[in-house]
Nucleic acid binder design. Sequence first.
DNA 1: TCAATATATCACGATTTTTTAATATAAAAC
DNA 2: GTTTTATATTAAAAAATCGTGATATATTGA
Lengths: 112, 112
Amino acid sequence: MRCRTVQGKTGTTGNRPALNYDATAKVLQALAHPLRLRILEVLQQGEMTCGELQNALGCGQSMVSQQVKLLEHQGLVTTRKAGTLKYCGIRNPDILKLFSCLSKHVREVLRK
Amino acid sequence: MRCRTVQGKTGTTGNRPALNYDATAKVLQALAHPLRLRILEVLQQGEMTCGELQNALGCGQSMVSQQVKLLEHQGLVTTRKAGTLKYCGIRNPDILKLFSCLSKHVREVLRK
DNA sequence: TCAATATATCACGATTTTTTAATATAAAAC
DNA sequence: GTTTTATATTAAAAAATCGTGATATATTGA
């Protein structure tokens, strides 16, 4: 995310509160990965440890650890430690609303 | 987007129509860039040529050309040619709904 | 203390993305 | 025709991301 063009937090016309492009792009980037999407989807069922995610998704341990951390940094996942276990959960369930919209887009606009 | 883990179109439980993770990740990836976000925001005002985008965003010609094409490929922008001009517009305005949600997320969860 | 378990971190090659500059194409104006 | 204008394409370097394997840390239980 190293965009060289001018960066502004405010939008085009007057005082409408627009996007913070850099921060928004980072969140989108965090979402833009098949495995991370699957993590979020699986977590809709409820809290889950990293190990459980690993099994549910069939991927390596460090992969899960790293991707969960990334999602955490962008405020998409919260975690709590219980002994040696790390429970992951959806932070801000509002974000899940994006998925239906995206799913529709993929189906309709990119019909495949 | 070269994810080595298992790829499935259907979700976790039964027959709920889940995400196409790869396609969805690609769309998100297309959105995950400050300049591309700005292009989409500017285009909310209406159709605009690549040159006008260039001026509006203060960036180079090939940059606009390339990013617009990328957005086009993911069904986010439509274009029409008129002589030597290329008019760009928002395809599927529904996608704009994502922005308010993301903006809220950035403000609240990543409060900055 | 030692071993086992769960997670974190690190390092690396491979791939992808980003950005710029140069050049190509194609339509319009002259 | 030539020039001008708008856009497309290409090439290339720099940076970021992806995925893996190795290792580190930390907690638990024997």
